[in-house]
Amino acid sequence: MWQKLFIVIVFIAIVYNLGAGLYFMMTDKGSTNRTVNALTRRIAISIALFALVGISIWMGWIAPHGVVVR
């Protein structure tokens, strides 16, 4: 269960950085790097999460839909 909770928490961090990108797009109007930096963080965390989920399924730490395929 805690593995799934961890995935959800990391997903929230991704959504936060996506939202930050939108916010900076509105306030900075393209004059700073804050939007592109927030979006860079967003994709970096996404890739890390995807890799983690892949490894977790591979190692058997989590099972898709809770169904263990042997």
């Binding site: 997903f11 991704i14 959504v15 996506l18 990108g21 939108l22 797009m25 393209g30 939007t35 979006l39 967003r42 994709i43 996404s46 999460l49 995807f50």
Partner: peptide, 15 residues
């Protein structure tokens, strides 16, 4: 910037 952000949004929805 708007379209790039939108693409990130669509990516997050897929994730």
């Amino acid at each position: 910037e708007a379209v790039a952000w939108y693409w990130h949004f669509v990516d997050v929805v897929w994730l």
